[in-house]
Write a protein that binds this DNA or RNA. Structure first.
Length: 254
DNA sequence: GCCT
DNA sequence: CAGTACG
DNA sequence: AGGCCGTTACTG
């Protein structure tokens, strides 16, 4: 029996996030509501699904799900197989992905983000902040001093969320979970030793990020496995001997 | 886009 | 009042 | 083919 378990294992949440990415990109691009609404609806469905979407896909019964038709099903299948989709790729070539995080600023939706991009060339959080500070935002029709102020507040909020320290009580379990997940994802002899490091190891009351130290004969293998853990939201830096990622929830981990 |  | 964000 | 959440709240 061929028991090869897939090297990428994507969770329902991963799929949902990909669908949301597509929806947001489409929305920013300016496509009609229904075009992107469908993807956002499908994302919610997948996110709340009790069953594993991998199983459903394997059974070829994706389109039985409410809100999932031919188009969405195709995207899901591609994503589960490759971690990406043609549609998302095409969208990324037309709209800067960095615009998505601008959408997370309270008070900014796709419409406004699209205008900031097209009319002021703003694509990143840093550019947004700079433009607001320079009072360039209020020049746009429909934007005012108030909006500008709110944007500054919002950006500060996001930056703080990113730099916020995390209580040991939540950080440590996460780190232990990562370690266990890593062990389970690799053969027993792949990791000689692995343990929390940094402030985590020193039992500080709060930690700025997670540090995990591993001794291994094959660093590349461990780095690869680490990046593919379901807890990982985004790989910030993927080196041969060190990897930095951002976990779901914003916590970063080396 | 999905659904009726 | 119209447009936009949000629950 | 045709519809596709709807109210509340804020900004300009």
């Amino acid at each position: 029996m061929m028991n090869a378990k897939p090297t990428h294992t994507f969770t329902n949440h991963d799929v949902a996030e990909h669908l949301r990415l597509i929806a947001t990109l489409k929305e920013i691009k300016g496509e009609g509501r229904f075009h992107w609404l469908a993807f956002r609806n499908a994302a919610d469905v997948i996110d709340n699904l009790p069953e594993d979407v991998n199983d459903i896909a394997a059974a070829g019964t994706l389109t039985d799900l409410p809100g999932v038709g031919k188009g969405v099903a195709e995207v899901i299948e591609q994503f589960l197989a490759t971690g990406d989709s043609e549609l998302a790729g095409k969208l990324r070539s037309q709209v800067p992905v960095t615009l998505v995080e601008l959408t997370e600023v309270p008070g900014l939706g796709a419409k406004k983000v699209a205008r900031l991009w097209r009319e002021l060339g703003i694509t990143t959080l840093a550019e947004l902040k700079a433009a607001a500070e320079a009072h360039r935002i209020r020049e746009l029709k429909g934007f005012g001093a108030k909006t500008e102020e709110n944007i500054l507040k919002g950006v500060a909020l996001l930056e703080q969320r990113r730099h916020a320290r995390t209580p040991l009580g939540v950080a440590r379990p996460q780190a232990l979970g990562l370690i266990q997940a890593l062990r389970e994802a690799l053969p027993a002899d792949a990791i000689t030793a692995i343990e929390p490091a940094g402030s985590l190891r020193r039992w500080k009351e709060t930690v700025g990020d997670l540090d995990i130290l591993a001794i291994t004969p094959d660093p590349a293998q461990v780095m690869a496995a680490f990046q593919q853990l379901p807890q990982v939201e985004e790989v910030l830096l993927g080196g041969e001997t060190k990897t930095r990622v951002r976990l779901h929830g914003g916590l970063e981990c080396d």
